[in-house]
Computed example of a mutant assay.
Amino acid sequence: MDAQDLVALIAARVATVPRLMVGIAGPPGAGKSTLAESLCTRLNADLATTPAAIVPMDGFHFDDAVLEARGHRPRKGAPHTFDVAGFHHLLTRLRGNEPEVALPVFDRSQELARAGARIVTPAQRILLVEGNYLLLKQDPWAKLKPLFDLTVFLPVPIGELERRHIQRWLGYGFTPEAAETKARSNDIPNAELVVRDSAPADFNLIY
């Protein structure tokens, strides 16, 4: 399946349900956010009467102060550094089609989540939920999958993910050695976990 096929599938399925929740999962660095933004733009252009919105998992990062207190700051981005219960509650509210639901959004420039940074209304009948661990089989993450009407996984070879993460840290001014250490100490273990322990998605998409 490619992105064009996915747009067509979403357009067909949303006609049959009050709200369609699409889970876009994959390892860190696979391109989930980029895909979600591209899909949202395309869907909002093609289906003007059925608006789409993005629901990012990253808004549920624990704050650095919490991670520091727990000794988890070096592993920020790993499954145990997210408020999974809060995220599950948000998705449950979105399935309930409440009049208005506020979402937290992660601000990468400040490395923190901003509460109430985005609003979802009933008019937005297509929700593109994106995150690393949406299909993880470990509890409590395993409770998320039943909340999605459609799931998509972005498979990317570990070698390519390692290259992308090292390049990312180089872009932040790290030396080549430090960038490689940074990627291999956290990013790549997280990616390997997602690839190894995610439940099968309805579709795989190369993006």
Rank of each mutant, 00 (worst) to 15 (best):
G86A: 07
G77R: 06
V101K: 09
D107N: 08
D64I: 09
D46K: 07
E100N: 12
G86T: 03
D64E: 12
E98H: 11
R70K: 10
N97A: 13
L94P: 00
H80K: 15
L91N: 05
L91C: 07
D64C: 08
F106V: 00
G71V: 00
E100G: 09
H88A: 08
D83G: 02
G71R: 06
H89E: 10
P74D: 13
P56D: 04
I54A: 03
C40S: 15
C40I: 02
G77S: 09
H88Y: 15
A69R: 12
H72N: 15
G77I: 00
A102W: 10
H89D: 14
A78G: 01
T92R: 10
P79K: 09
S109Y: 14
A52I: 01
A115P: 07
H80P: 05
G77D: 03
L47V: 06
F60L: 02
D83K: 06
A48H: 13
P104R: 10
G77E: 04
P99N: 06
T50E: 12
E111P: 07
M57C: 01
A65C: 02
E98R: 11
P74V: 03
F62Y: 15
A113M: 05
R108C: 04
R114I: 11
H89F: 10
L112Y: 13
T41F: 13
L112D: 10
A53K: 06
P104G: 08
E100D: 14
T41A: 15
A48L: 11
E111N: 09
F60V: 02
G59C: 04
G96F: 00
A113C: 08
E98N: 07
V55P: 00
L43Y: 07
L39Y: 09
F87L: 02
T49W: 07
R75Y: 14
P104T: 11
P104I: 01
E100C: 09
A53H: 07
E68T: 10
H89A: 14
A48G: 11
L94S: 05
P56S: 06
E100S: 12
T49K: 13
E98T: 05
A85S: 12
F62I: 02
P79V: 01
N44K: 11
P56H: 06
T50K: 06
P51C: 10
A53G: 02
D63A: 08
A102L: 13
F62E: 05
E98F: 05
L67S: 09
A45D: 14
A85L: 09
P99V: 01
